[in-house]
Each structure stands twice: as structure tokens, then as C-alpha cells.
Design a protein around this nucleic acid. Structure first.
Length: 441
RNA sequence: GCCCCCAUCGUCUAUCGGUCAGGACACGGGCUUUUCAUGCCUGUAAGAGGAGUUCGAUUCUCCUUGGGGGUGCCA
């Protein structure tokens, strides 16, 4: 019977989870689910300074938000310290490691790397890898202060957890040769390795917070939905081979394959992520959209009920054009509050034109005279007025829109007026006309 | 310096020797006879350079160039 495949995500909790890091988690998860193996979580909390309970909580929140469910209990690396040191002692006894005091920092334990021959392995994404022993160096496994170093702890914990496949960032490639020798020295089977290309910025350097949002929490704040972020990140370095891009979890799990993973770095493109996020939001069930939508309005100090009611009709207009939830308050504030900001560019272009005040008053009068105030009637009235003035529809539509919303874009104008309601529309139209005349806008 | 890796449109990618080098994002144009969004149609845009192997290279090999990673007490 084949051995059950086990992979792991082994982050050190530092308070914030970097997208490059979570991408590694995503690939691990995808692979585990694809092969029906186990996805383990190990918290490498050896840095006591940064590994606070809050940092660990932030990590777990992030995992849950992205629905990266793990199997079994979490292994905390600090709990393995005694074991790590025992093994170091054993390596020492067997002459595979030695003590040395270099630079007067005290004695540390150093692992011996081979002096001749070659170390090689087959990387699931990078192919055959080899390194001459002469190009390697012995390395510290226990610091002079008695604490185990990453290399030792990492390898031992992988043995303890029965990890069969190590899927991690490209920055660990060099460590792999060291780790392989450690596995051998300890007498444990060497796992399979898969090194994922780095996520880089426009300069081709590792993507960092200097390049924009780099932590999962920030994307959450900005109003990206977890499935979109997951989907986008999964596509950085992997493609199913056909032209699918927006995919469900099940589709991604089904199609995932290291043979389709690229070995070259991938640039992070916020524009494409934003597009994909819009795709996900547009397809969300209305209840989900409403929950996120309301939360954003409330956070901005706005009511969740539009000034003129008609909430469902309003949401029909808003949902398909929402790219990120963070944009919600600014994009539809005028439907929920009487005070709404005017975009200076829109004002300059559409309102600061000859005859606009008179036009707005005329529109108001026409709308006021309407027997009923519904979309077809509004449209007919505006069109009739345009014709009477011998003007194009655009000459009326744009100033009206900016007057009632302060912005140059939004739902269709006739729908916008209807959603706003007659009284409010008239008041805004006349109010803006007056302000334009007195030069206060 | 030394070691390792990488290289297709601006970006993410498809192509597993023979393709009009395809798709998506972004950008431009058009239509849906108002904006924005959506949808549909459409345009611009790529195999870093040089050898070699081959009837034939984006694809295989080598070199150069460029980029990235690593280089004994970060992880």
C-alpha cells in the first residue's frame, strides 16, 4: 500500500502573513487535496520575540479566512526543543557534527557536510538539481546559546510529522542540499521537494510591503474576497493548461499538478487581482454581498437603508459593478447620505459650462411635472427635453449625473434618479443650480 | 568572488520539434443609439542575443547577456 502523502505549511508567526507565504500554503493545500493526502500545519514559533499569541492568532485567522483547512493537530516547534537537542547530541556522538567556538560567541554545534561527491535530488517543479559537495559548507545546527537552528528543527519536525512532500518557496533551494544530508545522517527517508518560484515586483525583486499591499490582512481590509485572492495566487506559477482562470476550489484541486508549475518568478499584478475580485463579487449570492456591503457602509458611518428605500433595486445596480468592497462607501454614498462630495474633475467638466444652472432647473421642472416617477417616465422626460433644446442626450445626462451624485460614473442615470426619488432629485438639482449661480461650487 | 536557478506579448500564462505562437489582465477602437459596469465584436503587442543538433526550432544542447536566490550561529 502506498504511503499516505503528507505535506505541511510551516510558517513562523510574525504577526502578518505575507502573500508569498500564503501562496506556498495554497499550493500545499491544493496538492494535498488533489492527491487525497494530508495538509499539516506547523507553527515555527522559535522566535520568542515575534511569536506572540496574537501573531499565532493572526496566522490562524488568515488560514481560516482563506479556507485553508488543515488536518490533525498543529505542531508548535518550541514543543520539540528537547528532541531537537537530543538529536544534536546524537549527531555529535556519532561524529557527524562537532563543537566549535568561533568568534568568541561560545561553543555552537556544527553539522558536517560531505567534502567530496555530489548531492542531488529531483525537484518536482525545477527538475533535477545537483550540487558539488565541495561547494557546500558545514553549518550551525545549535547556536552557542543552546537553541536549535532552523535547519535542524525544520528537518526534525518534518520527520516527526511524517512529511512526504516539502512544498516551499524558491528561497529554500540552497537549504535543500543541507537538509537532505541531515535526513540521511538521522537515517530518515528524504522527502520529495517542490520549490515554488518567488512572487516578485515590477523590478523582479521579491515582492515586499514596499511594493503595495503584501499581507493577507491588507487585502482583506481592502475588500478582496478570499476565494478571489486564493484563485489569483494559485495562478501565480501554475496554470491548468487549458484556458481556465476563474475556477472553483474543486476545479483547482482537480487540475493541480506540479508538472504544470512554472520555475520562473511571477510578477504580482494588483490589476488582474482586482478584475478577478470583481468577477467573484458579481457571482456572489445576494446574501453574501449584502453582508459585506452593509459592513462597509456601517464602518463608514453610513446607514444600510438607502435614503429612498428601494434597497434591492439599488443592490442590483451596485453588485455587478463592485470591484472591491473597500470601494463601496465612496461609490454609493450619495444614495445613503445627503452630504456627498463632488469630484472636482467631474464638476469642472460637466457643471462649469455655459447654461448648466438653467438646464438643471429645467430638468427639475420637467421631472416635477411628471404624473408618475418611474424609469421609463424619467427617461422619456429627459429625452423630450433634450430634443426640445436641440441638444444631444449626453448634454443633459452628464450634468444631471454629476449634480445628483457628485461623480462621473455610477448606475444608469434614469435608474439613479428613480432610486434617489423625485423629491430628493429635484432638491439636489435645484441646490446645485443655486450653488453654481452663487459660485460656491 | 563562488555556487544554484530562471528567461514567450507591458503582466499572468498556453505550446511537451512542424501552430496564422492561443487565452486572460491592462491598453485602443466599435456595438448594445447617456456615463460607469456588464456583454458582444475588434485592434496593438512576445519567443533576450549568438552558435550547434535537426529536413525543420519558442521547444533539445552550449555560450553570452539579463534577472533572481544562496553563501557557517535569520527563517
Amino acid at each position: 500500500m502506498a504511503e499516505r502523502i503528507r505535506v505541511r505549511f510551516a510558517p513562523s508567526p510574525t504577526g502578518k502573513v505575507h502573500i508569498g507565504n500564503i501562496r506556498a500554503a495554497i499550493f500545499n493545500w491544493l496538492y494535498a487535496r488533489h492527491v487525497g493526502g494530508e495538509f499539516l500545519l506547523r507553527v515555527e514559533d522559535t522566535d520568542l520575540e515575534r511569536s506572540t499569541p496574537e501573531a499565532i492568532q493572526a496566522l490562524l485567522d488568515c488560514m481560516r479566512w482563506l479556507r485553508l483547512d488543515w488536518d490533525g493537530e498543529i505542531l508548535y516547534q518550541t514543543s520539540q526543543r528537547a528532541h531537537h537537542l537530543e538529536v544534536a547530541e546524537d549527531l555529535l556522538r556519532r561524529g557527524l557534527a562537532y563543537r566549535e567556538n568561533k568568534g568568541g560567541q561560545g561553543e555552537c554545534v556544527i553539522f558536517r557536510m560531505p567534502k567530496e561527491g555530489v548531492i542531488e535530488y529531483d525537484d518536482l517543479v525545477k527538475g533535477h538539481m545537483r550540487k558539488q559537495a565541495k561547494d557546500t559548507q558545514d553549518f550551525v545546527i545549535v547556536r552557542s546559546d543552546g537553541s536549535p537552528v532552523f535547519h535542524l528543527a525544520n528537518v526534525l519536525d518534518d520527520i516527526t510529522q511524517g512529511v512526504t512532500h516539502i512544498i516551499r518557496g524558491d528561497d529554500h533551494v540552497e537549504n535543500t542540499f543541507k537538509h537532505i544530508m541531515l535526513f540521511r545522517a538521522i537515517g530518515a527517508p528524504v522527502p520529495q521537494y517542490a520549490h515554488l518560484p518567488m512572487i516578485v515586483n515590477n523590478q523582479g525583486k521579491p515582492y515586499s510591503k514596499r511594493d503595495g499591499s503584501a499581507f493577507v490582512g491588507e487585502f482583506r481590509e481592502l475588500g478582496f474576497v478570499p476565494d478571489a485572492l486564493f484563485n489569483y495566487l494559485a495562478l501565480l506559477g501554475w496554470a491548468p493548461g487549458d484556458d481556465r482562470e476563474v475556477m472553483t476550489r474543486a476545479e483547482m484541486v482537480g487540475a493541480f499538478d506540479f508538472a504544470k508549475c512554472k520555475a520562473s518568478p511571477a510578477r504580482f499584478d494588483i490589476k488582474k487581482l482586482t478584475w478577478m475580485n470583481g468577477e467573484y463579487i458579481a457571482r456572489e449570492p445576494r446574501a453574501d454581498f449584502e453582508a459585506a456591503f452593509d459592513a462597509r457602509l456601517q464602518a463608514a458611518g453610513l446607514p444600510t437603508e438607502p435614503l429612498n428605500g428601494l434597497r434591492d433595486a439599488l443592490l442590483d445596480e451596485i453588485q455587478p459593478r463592485t470591484k472591491t468592497y473597500g470601494d463601496v462607501p465612496a461609490n454609493c454614498r450619495w444614495f445613503f447620505a445627503e452630504d456627498y462630495p463632488f469630484d472636482p474633475k467631474a464638476v469642472a467638466k460637466r457643471l462649469h459650462a455655459e447654461g448648466v444652472p438653467a438646464l438643471l432647473d429645467e430638468v427639475a421642472a420637467a421631472l416635477e411635472a411628471l404624473p408618475g416617477f418611474d424609469v421609463p417616465a424619467i427617461e422619456a422626460a429627459v429625452r423630450a427635453l433634450a430634443e426640445a433644446r436641440g441638444a444631444g442626450l449626453g448634454a443633459l445626462v452628464h450634468p444631471i449625473r454629476v449634480a445628483v451624485s457628485g461623480r462621473a460614473e455610477g448606475p444608469g442615470l434614469f435608474e439613479t434618479l428613480w432610486l434617489l426619488g423625485r423629491e430628493r432629485s429635484l432638491r439636489r438639482l435645484r441646490g446645485v443650480a443655486a450653488r453654481l449661480r452663487e459660485g460656491s461650487l
